[in-house]
Write a protein that binds this DNA or RNA. Sequence first.
RNA 1: GUCCUGAUAGCUCAGCCGGAUAGAGCAUACGCCUUCUAAGCGUACGGUCGGGGGUUCGAAUCCCUUUCAGGACGCCA
Length: 553
Amino acid sequence: MSINQIEATLKKVLKDALVISKLCEDYDTESIVIEIPKDSSNGDYSSNIAMQLTKVLKRNPREIATAIVENLNKEEGKIEKVEIAGPGFLNFFVNKSSIASIITEVLAQQDKYGHSNHGKGIKYDIEYVSANPTGDLHLGHARGAAGGDSLARIMMAAGYDVTREYYVNDAGNQIKNLAYSLMARYNQECGLDWEMPEDGYHGSDIKNIAVQIREIIGDKYKGQNNEEAYKYFRETGKEYELEKIKVLLKDFGVEFDVWFSETSLYEDNMIIPTLDKLKSLGHTYEADGALWLRSTDYNDDKDRVLIKTDGTYTYLVPDIAYHLNKLDRGYDYLVDILGADHHGYINRLKASIQALGYEANKLEVDICQMVRLVRNGEEVKMSKRTGNAITIRSLIDETGVDAVRYFFVSKAANTHFDFDLDLAESKSNENPVYYVQYAHARMASILGLAKEANIELASNYELLTHEKEIELLKYINEFKNVVVDAADARLPHKIVNYVQKVAQLFHSFYNECKVVDSTNIELSSQRLALVAATKITLKNALNLIGVSAPEKM
RNA sequence: GUCCUGAUAGCUCAGCCGGAUAGAGCAUACGCCUUCUAAGCGUACGGUCGGGGGUUCGAAUCCCUUUCAGGACGCCA
């Protein structure tokens, strides 16, 4: 049972033809490539199978193609015509009504259309954002959030069992810094001359929290620099910062199943056993008064310190424990979506899990490259230190969730990305997100008008033979394939490309084919069904990238 | 210096497990609203796929080399 009925059928008859013509004894159906040619004069579908076989069979591709065609069961494959073209392509012109049957499927499945059981039974944990709760998210985080959330949605649609996870770094030095920064700002609010710590966080967000704290507790900790005060500022700061992140992500349409606290690794005693395991397996050694992980055994450039000379752990230790914990929770694969500045971290993390006895490919790390904000062709700087930078919050407020999410996933994450503020903010045809949403709104409008005119959806589609209708039908039919492709390649931008293409085909269809027409109810009702199916498909696809599908614009 | 990403149309990018004349959006030019939303459609213009080698019937795609750009190379997190 393959995902796309038409293509599965073509693959099957192709394979049968190979066997009957004695070209092959058997052939893996799944490895046959079926494509939709760019130029429809090259058929509805095509295959390069004959060319693929030249290497194995050492025969001329056209000769192979001829042999296949002679033994092709055209009836079973619902093929009207097959041609051999170019260097040896097989071009199939298929029965139009078999293409149109996709409408029935879409209308039956509604918001489940596009879903498949391709990844059934495979458990993934996807970790993304995982920004420290010490300040506002930056653009890289937002990109990771949009990409990670979209990927999770896509993989779930492809049938994978996905857990979305955020690792909260609430235990290291940076939290100490947060506490002392907040203490300083608080005391400054109280009117004292209190210096910020050397590596303190100077962002305005810390000041805001200090003001809020003072409104609640008054001068309770004024002038105090003791354990109790420190603890208070640490915990309170953490809470405020984390809450801000949670609210922001939620407003951005990004959700998580698990918020995993670094502190819990200590509280639940996961650190020591992890270290013990590494030691007992012989992957550590002591040198220069520190404990080292021999990560060079597993393709890392150098060994890594686990316990520093002062007896404290490096960041790596809890991170190893965390990944071990994730693996022990029974996921088949872990995916970390990290910023480009963490790429040096990949090898040591992979080395760590290998040292613990897991295959390196259990952990897959996707790197998210930097984002530059551009306005009027010039870069807009975003800095954590200075207060006047553009925050993710203001970006969302100004340009809208839909546009921001659409833009962030529209390009592969591992490419450098210029975010064009002028384009994202423009409410015009320059903005690609509107192009797609407009197509959806148009469909909604047509369906509304048809309802007023009492035109019902047809259940048979033999009149849909116009070139624009066929094109649209073929691409609707591709949706499940696209979702599976995007999921397996972990490339959400494939959905964006798809959505663009469907919108384009629809707009083109709209221009040539009048849908609501009471003088031709039969054709009208069949076209209406096509519009309804397209609308469902487009909405489902947009949902995979967290972009809304408006009924009206 | 080592490693990771990139380099494709004027701009931003797809395509990259080798396949038909290299695609899209934006920009530019010209057409299309008495007819379902013109935030739309159509046509045109636009490319030594960074350079140079190699493998192949066939290379933007694979291999080698080189140039340029961004990033990472801590007993920070």
